[in-house]
Design a protein around this nucleic acid. Structure first.
Length: 442
DNA sequence: TCTGGGGTCCTAGGACCC
DNA sequence: TCTGGGGTCCTAGGACCC
């Protein structure tokens, strides 16, 4: 039996832990650059704020209804996530951390009343981490996801589902008739794996509810749609097709991209941004002990400014020898940037993606054919020295905070970083920076 | 004025191999 | 009219997830 544990309105809940005055009020958390709403409290949802709703379109709700908007504080959310995941992990032999606010638990071999245990877990997460959760149980991951949806909706919208299913819902422990009634009351688009496109096609074909989907013939679904949707149908029928993945493979690509706080025209400013983004991906690359064989750089103007001349450039830069060294990666990224940069455009976004990974320490070297590469061969010993340097940089930045040690080409002063994000409403890093720790006065 | 940032998997089609 | 029969690898694009 699987459970899905999911934090309610997670980013908003994290903020409310340290600002209890926000409880009961409409709150949204905004994306980078305070662009659009990426988390909404129930009260904000009730005001009609959509997921991804641009802030400039709903900001009038600030005055009209006291909507509170906060800039995203991902350092805080990541730390709160760790706390929540740790409590959940203590209730089952295996856990898959599926996203920042969700984990699957595998209760195989666990005896006793699972609903009671999940209720206790939910209470403990609320007490210890301060995060309210919904828990869904089912014999497959897709059914656990569906159960979680029912648990949260039953709590948020009284009357939508039987109220005893609120907070914790177990689809694996009920009569078929009861399960089918719940499926018939749920739209097909709520199913994990059914997105807007497939959902539209299904509804057009008369498959409107989860029950309609669960009753389709998996073989026919595979023919007409795909093997992916076939698995979804089988999982709804109770046959596990998607395994719990508690040891995710290393990533195959690592990306860092951002929209700028202001439009950028100068190549120099793009270069500081590309340096910073490359430093970030290089750090992540080293954390998973990989080396990259190539990287992609891209820059583009804003599609939301149709009156501006539009340009989008991207290029793949192969690396002579796979590396995880920040300075080598940055040199290649900047070489790529020089190739794609065009004068006279107002750039809105840039990004760097690392690809073609190999495990570090097992790096394929090149055959020296005496060709003029222009790159001096420093040999394996030099590579080893550099990896020590990188390890030192990473450990300094872990200890003293990101950005303590950087490449100078990332820009040392604010004036050299005009692209930096707009974050006018960010809350303190309550749990990760000593100087920002909240102080309680008795 | 103002519109996020990361990922994965599957499929179809083309190039190429013997 | 009729043009072999298998394969692999790579890429682009589309769909999904949070």
């Amino acid at each position: 039996m699987y459970a899905l544990v999911d934090g309610n309105n997670f980013y908003v809940s994290c903020e409310r832990v340290f600002r209890p005055s926000l409880v009961g009020r409409p709150v949204v958390v905004l994306s980078n650059n305070d662009g659009c709403a990426i988390a909404r409290s129930n009260e904000a949802k009730a005001l009609g704020v959509r997921m991804g709703h641009p802030w400039f379109e709903c900001r009038q709700l600030e005055e009209q209804h006291g909507l509170v908007a906060l800039s995203a504080n991902f350092a805080l959310y990541g730390d709160m996530s760790d706390r929540m995941m740790a409590v959940a992990a203590s209730y089952a032999p295996r856990q898959e951390i599926y996203s920042i606010d969700e984990s699957f638990l595998d209760f195989s071999g666990v005896r006793g009343d699972l609903v009671a245990q999940c209720r206790e877990m939910r209470t403990r997460i609320l007490d210890w981490a301060g995060i309210p959760c919904g828990v869904g149980l089912g014999p497959t991951k897709t059914l656990a996801k569906l159960a979680n949806h029912i648990a949260k909706t039953a709590e948020r919208k009284p009357g939508s589902y039987p109220k005893e299913l609120a907070q914790v819902c177990h689809l694996g422990a009920m009569q078929t008739s009861e399960l089918e009634a719940l499926m018939a009351a749920t739209e097909v688009g709520e199913v994990w794996g059914v997105g807007p496109r497939i959902g539209f096609q299904l509804v057009n074909a008369g498959v409107k509810t989860v029950l309609d989907l669960a009753r389709l013939d998996p073989v026919a679904v595979r023919r007409r749609f795909s093997v992916v949707l076939e698995k979804t149908v089988r999982e709804l029928q109770g046959t596990p097709c998607i395994e719990l993945d508690d040891a995710p493979a290393p990533k195959q690509q690592i990306m860092c991209s951002r929209s700028f706080g202001h439009p950028i025209t100068r190549g120099f400013d793009l270069a500081t941004a590309v340096t910073e983004f490359t430093s970030r991906v290089a750090e992540k690359l080293r954390a998973q002990e990989s080396a990259a064989g190539a990287l992609v750089v891209f820059i583009r103007t804003s599609p939301f400014r149709p009156d501006d001349p539009q340009y989008s450039g991207s290029t793949t830069v192969p690396l002579i020898r796979p590396t995880a060294d920040t300075s080598e990666l940055v040199a290649s990224a900047l070489a790529g940037l020089r190739r794609i940069y065009r004068k006279g455009f107002r750039y809105a976004k840039a990004g760097v993606m690392l690809i073609e990974f190999q495990p570090r320490g097992r790096v394929q070297c090149e055959l020296d054919l005496g060709t003029e590469t222009g790159i001096p061969d420093e040999g394996v010993a030099a590579t080893r020295d550099k990896s020590k340097l990188m390890a030192a940089v990473d450990s300094v930045n872990r200890r003293y905070g990101r950005g303590s040690l950087i490449l100078a080409s990332a820009g040392l002063e604010g004036a050299q970083r005009p692209w930096s994000m707009k974050q006018e409403r960010r809350t303190p890093n309550y749990t990760t920076v000593w100087s920002e720790m909240p102080i309680v006065r008795a």
